[in-house]
Simulated scan of single mutants.
Amino acid sequence: MNKSWMIIGLCSLTFMTACQKDAASEDIYKDSGNTINVNDDRRELYKEHNNGNKSENFGYVRHQKSPVLGENMSDNHYTEIDREKVADTISKYCTDLPNVQDTATLVTDEEVLILYATDTKDRNLTADQVKKTGMSVVPRWYRVYVSDNFNLRKTMESYAYLDSTSTNAETGIDKLIKEMVKAPQGQPVSDEENANGDIKNISNQSNHMEKE
């Protein structure tokens, strides 16, 4: 009799544990929605009320340079950026664009890499829209690279766990960028900058003018 009660008790405990796991998994699924986060950092960049409605308040912040002569405080501004949340925001905005169904974004300390799946008939126009969307979210000195070769997504995801101090991180990112720029990058950002926000090489401009 005692053995029977012990077996019943163990079965009940196993069932309750399984239900708790299923409920937790369901909560995670609801929280994630259509967003895939490789990392678990879920800190918010933008506030929302508890009822889910977005705040209608204006945002106002004032910053001043350090009163200490020669002290550079600007570096601290950029180290506080939540790169995962920035990547989340860019991906969300990009999927609102016409003909863009899926977006993956990687944000480093100086680059934004955006991969997107699209059925567009004008690849250059869509690339320009995706690029400008990324540039609208990050500080102006960031360089933004885009590609509609969504097969590169697995490679991008492999860098999601790295940071700027990781061994060979820069080399790997550079290789990924070289593959991405084989796709259209949109229009030049300005007369002085190329499509990705890099300052144009003066010698390259001269060579180009000579060929023309």
Rank of each mutant, 00 (worst) to 15 (best):
M1H: 14
M1P: 09
N2I: 09
W5L: 11
L10M: 07
L13W: 00
T14H: 00
M16Y: 05
T17H: 00
A18N: 02
C19D: 02
Q20Y: 08
Q20W: 05
K21C: 01
D22E: 11
A24H: 12
E26Q: 10
I28D: 13
Y29N: 12
Y29L: 13
K30H: 14
D31S: 10
N34L: 13
V38D: 13
N39G: 12
Y46P: 00
E48F: 07
G52V: 05
K54Q: 13
S55P: 00
S55V: 03
E56V: 06
N57H: 12
F58M: 10
F58K: 10
G59I: 05
Q64N: 10
S66Q: 02
V68M: 08
L69N: 10
E71N: 10
D75T: 05
H77G: 00
Y78M: 09
Y78V: 09
T79R: 13
V86L: 11
A87N: 09
A87E: 09
D88A: 09
S91N: 06
K92F: 07
Y93L: 15
C94R: 00
C94M: 03
P98N: 02
N99C: 04
V100M: 03
Q101F: 08
D102Q: 04
T103C: 12
L106D: 07
L106S: 12
V107I: 15
T108P: 09
E110N: 15
V112C: 11
V112K: 06
L115E: 06
L115N: 04
L115K: 01
A117F: 03
T118P: 09
D122Y: 03
R123H: 08
L125E: 05
A127P: 09
A127H: 09
V130R: 04
V130N: 03
K131Q: 04
S136H: 02
V137E: 05
Y142K: 05
R143S: 11
V144D: 01
V146A: 06
D148K: 04
N149F: 02
L152G: 07
L152A: 05
R153G: 00
R153F: 00
R153W: 00
K154D: 06
T155Y: 00
E157L: 05
S158K: 04
A160C: 08
Y161A: 08
Y161S: 10
Y161C: 02
Y161M: 08
L162W: 04
L162E: 14
D163L: 02
T165C: 07
A169I: 03
E170R: 12
E170K: 14
G172H: 06
G172S: 05
I173K: 11
L176V: 03
M180H: 10
K182H: 11
A183E: 14
P184H: 03
P184K: 01
V189G: 05
V189N: 06
S190Y: 13
S190T: 15
D191Q: 12
E193F: 11
A195W: 03
N196T: 14
I199K: 15
S206C: 09
N207K: 15
M209L: 15
M209W: 14
E210C: 11
K211Y: 15
E212C: 15
